[in-house]
Computed example of a mutant assay.
Amino acid sequence: MQPNYRLCISCRQVAPKSELWRIVRVYPDHQIQLDQGMGRSAYLCPQANCLKAAQKKNRLAKALRAKVPDSLYESLWERLELPSRIFID
């Protein structure tokens, strides 16, 4: 794997870091958040099938070794729907 490339935890595809969503378990308070922070990270493709599989098989929780709140999945689904709304308007 080349520098600045990451692996999607759902589909196992390698892609540039900038094209994937980053989910972080922040150290030391173990909060789960998107995009920013230092700590354990997992990367996910911004595609519906990857997000659906990650949610169904609990892959984010396994990769981050922490319970992932439902609100995080909701915000990821909203993020996924946002580009389609921009092009429709």
Rank of each mutant, 00 (worst) to 15 (best):
M1W: 03
M1N: 05
Q2D: 11
Q2G: 00
P3S: 14
P3H: 08
P3C: 04
P3T: 10
P3Y: 05
N4K: 12
N4I: 05
N4A: 10
Y5K: 12
Y5L: 02
Y5C: 12
R6N: 03
C8Q: 08
C8A: 05
I9Y: 05
S10F: 01
S10T: 07
C11L: 03
C11G: 04
R12I: 02
Q13I: 03
Q13D: 06
A15K: 14
K17G: 08
S18Y: 11
E19F: 02
E19Q: 14
L20A: 04
L20R: 08
I23M: 03
I23C: 01
V24Q: 06
V24L: 07
V26L: 12
V26D: 06
Y27C: 05
D29C: 07
H30Y: 15
Q31I: 10
Q33A: 06
L34Y: 04
L34R: 15
D35P: 03
Q36G: 03
Q36H: 10
G37Y: 09
M38D: 09
M38G: 11
G39E: 06
G39Y: 02
R40T: 10
R40H: 06
S41Y: 00
S41M: 08
A42V: 09
Y43S: 13
Y43C: 11
L44A: 07
P46K: 06
P46S: 02
Q47M: 08
Q47L: 13
N49H: 12
N49L: 10
C50K: 01
C50L: 03
C50G: 02
L51Q: 01
K52I: 00
K52H: 13
K52W: 10
A54F: 05
Q55D: 11
Q55R: 15
Q55A: 15
K57W: 09
K57S: 11
R59W: 12
R59M: 11
R59Y: 14
L60D: 00
A61T: 04
A61D: 01
K62Y: 02
A63L: 02
A63F: 03
L64H: 06
R65F: 02
R65D: 00
A66L: 00
K67N: 07
K67V: 13
V68N: 09
V68A: 12
P69E: 09
P69W: 13
D70F: 06
D70L: 11
D70K: 14
L72W: 07
Y73S: 00
Y73R: 09
E74F: 05
S75T: 15
S75K: 14
S75Q: 15
W77M: 05
L80E: 00
E81I: 00
L82M: 13
L82Y: 15
P83L: 10
P83A: 05
P83Y: 10
P83V: 12
I86V: 14
I86K: 15
I86M: 13
I88E: 11
I88A: 06
I88L: 12
